[in-house]
């Protein structure tokens, strides 16, 4: 019996061999760093090596949470994510419905490509584009748009309050094209019979959108939102670093956990603080993923991650 099972598994040895490079990569790129989270509980000393350094318990976390930064980065990370979820979902569902209603094929294709284009640009490039718009002396806004409306130039990179609006606008600019494709394909998946039946009954187009399209893509919207809520403790580092040009004046409204960890490690060399903030993000973030997935599983089991 045992030898039969062994023989059975033997047949699959080539398949296991195929998986070795990928699994090895996961070990190095993902699992070792997970184990490395213990450094948040250590006083890192390079001479003793990372795993050989002394344990100091929750000291790093105590320092972190005694600063005001801990509150600011938590508020910013979650606050922006909530704003992004609401704004981007509304805009992209709206765009998807407009695209699906549009009859002219060529125009539809053109609009879709144009709106998707920003999604292909890197955040460094978007930092340049932002600068072309918002540069104080030369920017398109200060030189062309604001004078047209009879307004004074604004020092965009000096006013933290403005960034509460700028960052969601930039992020929507980049992401709506991508999200609208997902919702658009959900609309395309709706059985046309519903619409035929509705127009036979005399339903207007707007009624059809309201009573057929929106309810039928609701599960997709719901799932996408829940998945985003699962990622509420993570943020797009480039958006918060490159677009504000890493300006110190703006930290109060642009600093998020990811940028805090980066600056702590690379610019201040404060491994204790940044590893504590990183571990805080990893653990709380994981809890959010679990909770959001639990909800997805209850409401639409097919879309649950696990």
């Amino acid at each position: 019996m045992a030898s039969k099972k062994l023989k059975h598994i033997k047949k699959y040895i080539p398949l296991y061999i195929m998986m070795i490079p990928g699994l090895l990569y996961l070990l190095i790129n993902n699992y070792l760093p997970m184990a490395g989270l213990v450094i948040a509980f250590k006083d890192v000393d390079y001479r003793k090596g990372i795993f050989g350094s002394d344990w100091i318990g929750f000291k790093n976390f105590e320092y972190l949470f005694s600063t005001e930064d801990a509150w600011v980065i938590t508020r910013n990370t979650m606050g922006y994510n909530i704003a992004f979820i609401i704004i981007n979902t509304c805009l992209s569902v709206f765009v998807a419905i407009l695209l699906s209603e549009m009859v002219a094929k060529g125009a539809k294709r053109f609009y879709q490509s144009a709106i998707l284009l920003p999604f292909l640009l890197s955040m460094v490039i978007i930092g340049y584009l932002g600068n072309a718009m918002m540069n104080t002396e030369l920017g398109f806004l200060n030189k062309s748009i604001l004078p047209l409306m009879g307004m004074d130039p604004v020092s965009w990179y000096m006013e933290p309050k403005l960034w509460v609006f700028i960052l969601p606008i930039v992020y929507a600019w980049k992401e709506v094209g991508y999200l609208s494709i997902i919702y658009y394909s959900a609309v395309l998946g709706i059985d046309t019979e519903y619409y035929e039946a509705a127009s036979l009954e005399g339903a207007t187009k707007l009624q059809q959108i309201y009573y057929i399209t929106v309810p039928l893509i609701k599960p997709v919207i719901y799932t996408m939102v829940l998945l985003s809520i699962g990622k509420i403790f993570r943020s797009d580092f480039g958006l918060f670093y490159h677009v504000p040009l890493n300006s110190g004046t703006l930290y109060s409204t642009t600093n998020v956990i990811d940028t805090y960890v980066y600056r702590g490690l690379m610019q201040l060399g404060d491994i204790g603080m940044s590893s504590a903030a990183g571990a805080y993000q990893a653990i709380v973030g994981f809890i959010f993923v679990l909770i959001s997935n639990l909800v997805v599983k209850k409401t639409s089991p097919d879309n649950a991650l696990f």
């Binding site: 790129n29 070792l32 760093p33 997970m34 991650l305 696990f306």
Partner: peptide, 22 residues
């Protein structure tokens, strides 16, 4: 599951950086 778990949880910048460089 080994593949999947890495989508849920990761060590983040500090341990990744130290491991790759040290």
């Amino acid at each position: 599951f080994l593949v999947f778990f890495t989508m849920l949880f990761n060590g983040g910048l500090v341990p990744t950086y130290l491991m790759y460089t040290e």
